[in-house]
Amino acid sequence: MNTIAIVDYGMGNFHSVARALQAAAPNADIQICRKAQDIDRASRVVFPGQGAMRDCMRTLEVSGLREAVLRAARNKPLLGVCVGEQMLFTVSEEGDVPCLDIFPGVVKRFAGPQFASNDTPSQERELLKVPHMGWNQVEQQRPHPLWAGIPDKTHFYFVHSYYAAPADESLTVGVSHYGLRFTCAVAAANIFAVQFHPEKSASPGLRLYRNFVDWNP
């Protein structure tokens, strides 16, 4: 049985992830999991996240699911979504919070002149809003089973103010542009993780979930 555990540590968008997985893979056994043993038993794991990094890391710790996520990351297909992607990295600049450190790298805020506060607007230039909210193109950096059937430069739905910058560029499988070029999808061995929200990205998002359900790394 293909059981998919959605890690529910008390933060985030696990209901909408569950609904999208259900629509993408009607025959899969999708479980919203609050217990480590349920995550250990599942054949694959989705790790969502939403909201402030400090709250996400703290509630993951308090829920007792941190070790189960780390165990899953060692040998099962694991899909990180949004803050669930960011949490896989070493540390977040959002409150200098240490993260799971599965991937080396820092989670950074969108910053720079193009993101400067626009209290004194210039007539010529348009300053970029934060959060980065809306549909943006994802440029696939290399083929991957989770990109199957999804054309390069497909739009996905984003909403975030921070993004993960991998220390090792070879982790990057997708990039987007918002004032700067940033990594929005990473992959290594049995792990795939995205900054955008496949569960809110219409049919390409459902295809990505379908690909994850079928993935045998």
Partner: peptide, 9 residues
């Protein structure tokens, strides 16, 4: 940087 911005309206 702004040209390098693919966010859609």
């Amino acid at each position: 940087a702004l040209n390098d911005n693919a966010l859609t309206r």
